[in-house]
Design a protein around this nucleic acid. Sequence first.
DNA 1: GAAAAACTCCCCCATTTTGCGGTATAATTG
DNA 2: CAATTATACCGCAAAATGGGGGAGTTTTTC
Lengths: 224, 224
Amino acid sequence: MITENISIPGSIYNNPGENKVKIIIVEDDEIIRESFVSLINESGRFLCTEAYEDCETALKYFKREDPDIVLMDIELPGISGIEGIKKIKKLKPETDIIVITVHSEDDKVYDALCAGANGYLIKNISPQKLIDSLEELYRGGAPMSTEIARKVIESFHRNSVSPLSPRETEVLQLLAKGKSYTMIANDLFIDKETVRTHIKNIYLKLNVNSKAGAIERASKDKLI
Amino acid sequence: MITENISIPGSIYNNPGENKVKIIIVEDDEIIRESFVSLINESGRFLCTEAYEDCETALKYFKREDPDIVLMDIELPGISGIEGIKKIKKLKPETDIIVITVHSEDDKVYDALCAGANGYLIKNISPQKLIDSLEELYRGGAPMSTEIARKVIESFHRNSVSPLSPRETEVLQLLAKGKSYTMIANDLFIDKETVRTHIKNIYLKLNVNSKAGAIERASKDKLI
DNA sequence: GAAAAACTCCCCCATTTTGCGGTATAATTG
DNA sequence: CAATTATACCGCAAAATGGGGGAGTTTTTC
């Protein structure tokens, strides 16, 4: 549980000049961590001031270090990278956080991005690409590995054929927004009774018997 | 309304060999369209078989052309690029569609991606980057311009410090799922009256006075 | 051209939910 | 200590909900 932060003393490569972009690393594997540190400091453009092996330590020294970019692993001892991202973003929202991990499962990707990550790279990335990604991140981009970008885009795609008619879908969407029958009727310029009929049919088709049930089924099946 | 498709006769550059990736273009500006065609056909790797100035024509010949990639503009006469994307994806879901437009507004980006676009580029892209992006797309990536990638990532972020307490947020989330006070009480193992109190406070803080209002405000402000 | 589906509207009924007005206690936190 | 948060309770009246039934019109589909 007790860890210490690893100081990276200035070398001939990293003149700690004001013009370099400050990066900290959170990565539990020492080999990988050290190689990232070297890579970054040898880039000339970036300065890795500290590298930690867990989020707890990184958070402890975060305010002091005040980095521009955080390079974060996901699988970590103690609190996860996902939680770490949230905490860092809470401390200083403008910090750019880039995830570098072996995990490319949907869940991890979404969790990390939702937690506030600004980029997501897979660990098999080439050194040059990593540096390029950091550049891109600093310029305001959101570097992602090819497969990650595809996953992210896919999360916008809603496929599956709906059992509901267009009108029913429309009604259900409004219902899911918390609108009452009356409000829906007004929105769609139809009678409240018609809305009731639609909802009765929706419940029939979705095999539910309440608003909450319908919304649950609909969002699970991506009908809305 | 009446438009014709512009044939791109084979040139010394585009040997219509089986190994080239077939691309069609939908772009209403003739200058831009022609420059894309030239660029693509001179790349050696891709073959632009047809270029259309609207979606209607593109859709008409879509099955015949059966392209691997569609390069789509958003602002088009007749049906929009967004609608066009939907229709193409309906015809052949595995088609890779990449948007190239001057528009970088959030709405357009989300609409396009939700419609099924696999990539989104801004028109100031360099010729080399465009070709690179097509390569990336064909390899399964999701090429995006820097600023677009950032927007997409940001759509995952839930920032803004919530005015709501953790418990209130919890209650609001369940409320947004269409649950009744009673259901929320059961879910949270608290009394129904307590739920009522929380909701009263939520309405106060969000300055609304109905379920629908709270959900609207909450989703706009990304509180849930 | 007939059948099916979709969209529209209406009635009855009982129950639940909702929103608003209060009050109040214990725990936490700055 | 004051403020915030989370908890719980009461009463009340209006609104919403879910179930049942029926019945037209238009649109789509076969």
